[in-house]
Amino acid sequence: MLSAEAYGSNALRATIASMNVLAVIPSNLFRMISIPHDAIAYKHRNLIERRFRRLKHFRRFAIRYDRRTIHFTGFVHLAAMMIWLR
């Protein structure tokens, strides 16, 4: 787990840039020079992370009882529908 200081560090941003990926990390409030970020992309990324967290509440998903991909995928679809209908 990254600490709050390492979350938006230059080293992390350089690692992400070396993967040819655009970093969607907001600047720390205490940074001297603020680094702009795409707030809409950050919001969508946050929503996706929240959905995965809710999926992990299903024990079958978190432990991955289903070894066959077709069964696991089917359960992911079922769990996603159950979360969506709440």
Rank of each mutant, 00 (worst) to 15 (best):
P26Y: 02
P26A: 03
P26M: 03
P26K: 01
P26H: 03
P26L: 03
S27I: 01
S27W: 00
S27Q: 02
N28Y: 07
N28P: 09
L29H: 02
L29G: 05
F30H: 08
F30Y: 07
F30R: 08
R31W: 02
R31L: 00
M32G: 08
M32A: 04
M32S: 14
I33C: 05
I33E: 14
I33Q: 15
S34K: 05
I35P: 04
I35D: 05
I35E: 01
I35Y: 03
P36R: 00
H37N: 10
H37P: 11
D38P: 07
D38Y: 05
D38C: 08
A39M: 05
A39E: 09
A39N: 08
I40F: 10
I40P: 07
A41Q: 12
Y42F: 11
Y42D: 03
Y42W: 10
K43M: 00
K43L: 02
H44V: 07
R45K: 13
N46V: 00
N46Y: 10
N46Q: 06
L47S: 12
I48K: 00
I48E: 05
I48D: 02
E49S: 14
E49N: 05
R50W: 15
R51K: 04
R51L: 14
F52G: 06
F52E: 03
F52D: 04
R53M: 11
R53E: 10
R54H: 10
R54M: 12
R54V: 03
R54P: 08
L55Q: 08
L55G: 03
K56T: 09
K56C: 10
K56H: 11
H57Y: 02
H57V: 06
H57A: 02
H57E: 04
H57C: 07
H57M: 04
F58A: 00
F58C: 00
F58I: 00
R59W: 14
R59L: 07
R59A: 14
R59F: 11
R60A: 06
R60T: 11
R60K: 02
F61E: 07
I63D: 07
I63F: 06
I63M: 07
R64Y: 11
R64C: 13
R64I: 07
Y65F: 13
Y65V: 13
Y65L: 10
Y65E: 14
Y65H: 14
D66N: 02
D66I: 02
R67V: 15
R67C: 12
R67E: 13
R67P: 13
R67A: 15
R67K: 14
R68L: 11
R68V: 09
T69Q: 08
T69Y: 14
T69I: 13
T69W: 14
I70T: 09
I70W: 01
I70L: 03
H71A: 12
H71Y: 12
H71V: 10
H71D: 09
H71G: 15
F72L: 11
F72V: 06
F72K: 07
F72I: 05
F72P: 08
T73M: 10
T73S: 15
G74N: 12
G74V: 06
F75C: 03
F75H: 04
V76C: 08
V76W: 06
L78H: 09
L78V: 06
L78W: 08
A79E: 04
A79F: 12
A80H: 00
A80V: 04
A80N: 00
